[in-house]
Computed example of a mutant assay.
Amino acid sequence: MSTVPEELQYSADHEWIATTADPSVVRVGITDFAQDALGEVVYVEHAEVGATVASGDVVGEVESTKSVSDIYAPVAGEITAVNTDLDANPGAVNSEPYASGWLFEVRLAESSGLDSLLSAEDYKNQVG
């Protein structure tokens, strides 16, 4: 069974969402389930800092030895940061998906969609 931290929220597209020190900003990454399905991550195409995104927008890609997968914005808002450490170490997405493998941060829009995300329990039920 994949690791699913209880304190996070999740999207149906296998992204996790964590709060940050700033209550208006969330951090986003892909779940343990998603990184396992992808295989060895070799490249991450970052979201564009400053871009305004809607929930469900494609904001980048993760390339693995198996495939290329889109990264979706799980919430609406403005991209405020990307994890440039992944340029040199994309494998962090595999080894530490909930820590140093994070992908980007979003300043939440007024209607961000945060309240429609899945709980850890709901996400576990989705992935089996």
Results as ranks from 00 to 15, higher is better:
40 E>F: 02
23 P>V: 09
111 S>H: 12
57 D>M: 11
90 P>C: 07
38 L>S: 06
21 A>S: 14
15 E>P: 01
32 D>R: 08
52 T>H: 08
46 H>G: 02
10 Y>L: 12
112 S>K: 01
52 T>R: 05
44 V>F: 08
43 Y>G: 03
82 V>T: 14
119 S>M: 03
74 P>G: 14
80 T>D: 00
5 P>H: 07
20 T>G: 08
71 I>L: 14
128 G>H: 11
11 S>Y: 13
50 G>S: 02
111 S>A: 09
83 N>R: 06
91 G>D: 13
105 E>W: 05
106 V>F: 01
27 R>F: 01
108 L>K: 03
88 A>D: 15
126 Q>S: 09
23 P>Y: 13
125 N>I: 11
89 N>F: 03
103 L>K: 00
109 A>T: 04
25 V>Y: 04
72 Y>K: 06
111 S>N: 14
99 A>F: 01
9 Q>D: 05
18 A>S: 12
96 E>L: 09
22 D>K: 01
27 R>G: 08
114 L>G: 00
51 A>Q: 05
113 G>I: 06
117 L>D: 06
87 D>N: 15
58 V>I: 15
13 D>P: 00
29 G>N: 10
100 S>P: 03
101 G>N: 06
37 A>M: 12
101 G>A: 02
27 R>E: 14
19 T>Y: 01
12 A>K: 10
65 T>L: 14
51 A>E: 12
65 T>D: 12
109 A>F: 09
123 Y>D: 13
6 E>V: 10
32 D>W: 00
59 V>R: 05
122 D>V: 03
83 N>D: 05
103 L>Q: 05
112 S>V: 07
53 V>Q: 06
4 V>C: 02
39 G>V: 12
117 L>M: 08
67 S>G: 05
21 A>L: 10
103 L>A: 03
69 S>E: 15
119 S>D: 01
71 I>C: 06
13 D>G: 01
112 S>E: 05
67 S>F: 07
68 V>Q: 13
7 E>Y: 02
122 D>E: 12
111 S>W: 00
103 L>S: 10
31 T>W: 13
58 V>C: 07
63 E>Q: 13
41 V>G: 11
84 T>P: 00
27 R>W: 02
68 V>L: 13
70 D>V: 02
28 V>A: 01
21 A>I: 07
17 I>S: 01
32 D>C: 08
98 Y>G: 00
12 A>F: 01
40 E>N: 12
36 D>W: 00
16 W>L: 07
122 D>T: 09
14 H>R: 13
125 N>F: 02
68 V>D: 06
29 G>I: 15
8 L>I: 03
44 V>H: 12
102 W>S: 01
125 N>V: 14
16 W>Y: 09
71 I>T: 15
95 S>H: 13
113 G>A: 09
27 R>D: 06
83 N>H: 13
33 F>M: 12
45 E>H: 07
79 I>H: 05
20 T>P: 14
44 V>C: 15
97 P>M: 13
106 V>C: 03
103 L>C: 04
25 V>S: 11
27 R>Q: 12
46 H>M: 02
77 G>A: 03
33 F>Q: 12
78 E>H: 04
62 V>G: 14
27 R>S: 13
128 G>K: 10
14 H>Y: 06
107 R>W: 04
66 K>R: 14
